[in-house]
Nucleic acid binder design. Sequence first.
RNA 1: GGUCUCGUGGCCGAGCGGCUAGGCACCGGUCUGCAAAACCGUAUACUCCGGUUCGAAUCCGGACGAGACCUCCA
Length: 487
Amino acid sequence: MTPNKTLHLYNSLSGKKEPFVPLHEGRVGMYVCGPTLYSEPHMGNMRTFINFDFIYRCLLHFGYQVKYVRNITDAGHITNSAGQEVDSIGSAARLEQVQSLEIVYKYNVKFQELQRLYNLLPPNIEPTATAHIQEQIEVIEQILENGFAYVENGSVYFDVKAYLQHFPYGELSGRKVEELEHETRALNAQEEKRFFADFALWKKAHPDDMQVWRSPWGNGNPGWHIECTAMSTKYLGKQFDIHGGGMDLKFPHHEDEIAQNCGSFGCNPARYWLHANMLNVNGQKMSKSFGNYFLPKEIVEGSSPLFSKPYAASVVRFFMLQAHYRSTLDITEEALNASEKGFERLMEGLSLLDKISPSNESSFSVEDWKQSAEAALLDDFNAPILIANLFEAVKQIHALNEGKAQLNESDLSLFRDTLAQLTFDVLGVEPIENQGNARLDGVMEVVMALRQKAREQKDWATSDMIRDGLAKAGIQIKDGKEGTSWG
RNA sequence: GGUCUCGUGGCCGAGCGGCUAGGCACCGGUCUGCAAAACCGUAUACUCCGGUUCGAAUCCGGACGAGACCUCCA
């Protein structure tokens, strides 16, 4: 296989890998569906955000000027399978006996903390649904004007049957409306919808609603899908390059977004639809309703009952990027431990590189290696192959260290720069900082000197007593060629 | 039930017609007073049954198994 020189990405819309051609050369508009803030995002949610952060970083690495928009859902009503109106945020607010806004604010603060913890680059804009009610109303008005929606008792519904006269529905998820009809529940008698596939754009206010907005159709709440259409249009235009989100949003959310966009502006909002796959626990998708979830904070604090020890956020991030974003990933303690060890080896390799001196000649091609690593990114953001290339580099670093390989000054500097870029800027991991403790350092210095003295006197009993005693205290002694270290 | 995806060595995972990633564990070696650590190296695989092909983990068909979606979801 010849390495790709241009970016190819898998488009869910076509089901194929396609060459990436942005609408405007050198620029990329990307919209990713963010969290609904009625609770704290779990690790599975984080996987999607980490994956799109990685994709964002790849695009930046290749020099694209990216406008990255990720919304925050802080309002919205949806009709569930029983035909009941669901307002997750309102429910959470009632449960916690506070205002909706308080719920949203509380979980937004937590989400921002998580972004920092997992080293997610901030999007250019993080718009909220509640700040864009007017824009949502305007899109609904446009859809009504185009004849693809109808008003019923203060609510507005998308008219799938009318829409089907002009556009296909179900292209993204590969569904046909005729098939859907047989598979889905019958229309509930109390429902106002004319057709089972119709969905709410605006929902009339309910007496229990904590948040209500005015609209041309009376007081109410926006539907669950319309915010993405309104905000992506406002910040990225009627059509933009990349739309991302979790696989589980494909239907109905993204399908309805396409319908809303076509129904108002006549075009699919995005040219490339990217879907990140799910995080599994014991072969099953992590989800709130299965109860098999844990929080991104718990794994770092070591408070999740699923794991016997804490893991650094970078280790978790590294673990996740060892799988491709389109594959499901099974999280287990054993797999995390494997990633942790590998991650430490990578980090130690990188710091070893700082100590390497240049030679007159180069014994291997840094340029070839760099191209191979970048080819992985160009091929639908293949993080696992990028990581394999990083470990290949670690091998070369050890060869350099042992004098079995050489690099001249310019190659060495290219090697250093590229490695740092790919590891820290693209993969987005951070070196694990040793929690320095000046007093302990001082004590250890004395202890190590005592042990060294014992060793010189071949007093193995004392030397081993120190080593074993420290091991019991959780401090490991590492005897190397250039002295002894501990950690 | 319908639609779709997937079954790769002890584990996690790439690859998706010939070049058989990578990490961890295992085993062997170097180093070491011994050990650990570190480094080097070997080995182990494509669920099963057919078919296409000079050649299949990779394409096609079937069986079995797992998962996702089918108006909560990242």
